[in-house]
Write a protein that binds this DNA or RNA. Structure first.
Lengths: 346, 346
DNA sequence: ATTAGCACTCTCATTTAATGAGTGCTAAAG
DNA sequence: CTTTAGCACTCATTAAATGAGAGTGCTAAT
């Protein structure tokens, strides 16, 4: 375990490096933080910290910079959260006006706000459909046996999909199915419904065709549900002024698939989660850190939001921001879900 | 008017500069293009071209680079279109599989393809709703008098909107309205319908409340309908290796509002349109060029697509690409619109 | 009208030297 | 035994100096 002095010095290094992006030396620590120690003593201590893996040398005779391990210790044990100012909180809450009643609006707005306030890149993964509750289905038959399905979830998410029926179904039949679904399956989690359908497909009680149709309706491609804002903010960071490296990072940020994977791996544990550098387990973004939290609808976690930025991130602020945003979005979405379908027109 | 020699030399300069991004001098032109002229002659000629405003000096004793006027003349009078290869055409057409039956998929795919093939930034403005034809409306009543409206256009575009009814409408009434709309207004352009509604609002024949509701349903915010892909490709261009400048361009590319405005200003004239540098009439992107064309559904123009990239763009290729893509998207969308609603379930 | 020749200009890459922050070690002081 | 002062040494960064190269503009000759 680190002794008090080492903690103080580690903290000073991390703090300074986050602020300046410059390797920090013993002299400047002695000057800025009144630790009552001479540079030489600090030097010895820093050498110890380096041996223990918390700090690193870019080259001999440069100051120290924190390693992933160093940041990790800082985040876990040294950092104090820096709460958002009242203004900021007010500003955020004001953004979610009542008129914002579509999930995609809320997603866009949230990623935008995350990015604007943090000056890093904000992201949010849309509510996972599987975890949503089914509320209502509409079917509109088109030409050539195509059917437009409109799926509405308890949280007010509307999902359109055009499906192909191999044979043209008579209208009564369609209506029959529709009623069955809306009557019997309403308020069930979508995941349950999928299971139900695939069971039916196995048993082959009903017409198989119809259950295949249902299967299509309740199957969707999970991609494309990530909202990202403020990618350019990466360019603000001095450590990415080198284009060659930055470009590959930009490319990574364009790969939604990649980010979605990393994000969904971000376990839905309580509170805010921080992944630093290599901890993201993804080569392409190993120079970035990720601060995430889950948001909920009616208490059940449905999605992830957060911020991606340089390893040298202002964790103390960002953690608070992400926490607050998760709360806010949860409130907004829960609220929205209460104003959703109770009765169905026609 | 430029004489034959000047044209040849201007063409050589533009061509060379597009290929290399380096100011081009008299010597290299004399060497590469067998014009049968000595460097000195070419020098004189280039000096003339400069005086006429087609070329510019970055500084004394550097080669020439084309001005906007130079590019303009090149595009209008000198350039020959370079058709896409058969492979490329096949590759593009293959991308639009039959399974692609949602407008937003087509938009994403199109901007993606534009970007991939050109190596610049691809963009497409979704079909203008006002110019679309109304096909069908569904209404689902929610709690608190909120109503989910699902608007389907002739081109298969589905638009959801939650609207607030000030007083709760009885279900029969809602159905009545719905039938009225679907029976009487189907196949009319949406613009006509909006006019019709505001007329009704003025006359106040029917219940005003209901027409206000209709007004809400048929009113939408035009924003957010721009699809952009391949922004990073800007970083590939050597002239943007200077971060300071590039950043502001990136910022401009993030401002959808701005781009939408520039794009919609791009008149729906026949064929491909090229805007070079300052011609975009927008300071923030005055170092970029825009190549656009309109795409159609059933022959009527409904949207714009194109490419945005450095002024030093490979116009001869890009113009062909944009032209071909406009044709392809028009076909795909027209095709889609034919498989749309004929009869309505329930 | 065209071209060869030449002086001149400006950029860019490379070299060289100076600067300076920072370390590591040792020996003295507390 | 811990802390500190002192000093030699190491690199990175910066600035100035240098030279090559590309290109121009002008003049005089073809």
């Amino acid at each position: 375990m680190l002794d008090e002095r080492k903690k103080k010095i580690l903290q000073a290094v991390v703090y300074n490096y986050i602020a300046t992006a410059l390797p920090v030396g013993s002299r400047s620590i002695a000057k800025k933080y009144k630790l009552g120690l001479s540079p030489a003593t600090i030097r010895n201590c820093m050498a110890d910290l380096e041996e223990l893996g918390y700090l690193a040398h870019p080259h001999t005779s440069a100051g120290r910079i924190p390693t992933d391990k160093g940041y990790r210790f800082y985040v876990d044990s040294l950092m104090e959260r820096e709460d958002l100012s009242l203004e900021e909180k007010a500003r955020i809450e004001k953004e979610y006006s009542d008129r914002m009643n579509r999930i995609d609006q809320i997603m866009e707005e949230t990623s935008q706000v995350l990015s604007l306030i943090s000056r890093y890149t904000g992201l949010i993964l849309a509510p996972n459909l599987e975890k949503s509750i089914f509320h209502h289905l509409e079917l509109v038959s088109l030409e050539n046996g195509r059917i437009l399905s409109i799926l509405i979830t308890g949280s007010g998410l509307v999902k359109n999909k055009i499906i192909e029926a191999e044979e043209i179904l008579p209208e009564e039949r369609l209506e029959e199915i529709l009623n069955l679904i809306n009557d019997r399956l309403s308020n069930l989690p979508l995941k349950r419904i999928k299971e139900f359908i695939s069971d039916q497909l196995k048993i082959k009680t009903y017409s198989v065709k119809i259950w295949e149709l249902m299967n299509q309706i309740f199957t969707w491609d999970g991609a494309e549900e990530l909202y990202l804002r403020g990618r350019i903010n990466i360019l603000e960071q001095p450590e990415f002024k080198d284009l060659a490296r930055t470009k590959s990072i930009f490319q990574a940020l364009e790969e939604k698939r990649l980010l979605v994977e990393v994000l969904s791996r971000s376990t839905p544990s309580e509170g805010v989660r921080v992944l630093i550098g290599k901890e993201t387990k993804c080569r392409k973004i190993r120079d970035l850190s990720l601060v995430t939290s889950t948001y909920r609808i009616n208490g059940r976690p449905v999605g992830v939001l957060g911020i991606i930025g340089p390893r040298r991130m202002e964790y103390s602020k960002v953690v608070s921001l992400v926490d607050f945003m998760a709360e806010t979005v949860s409130k907004v979405l829960t609220n929205l879900s209460h104003t959703t379908i109770s009765k169905v027109g026609e």
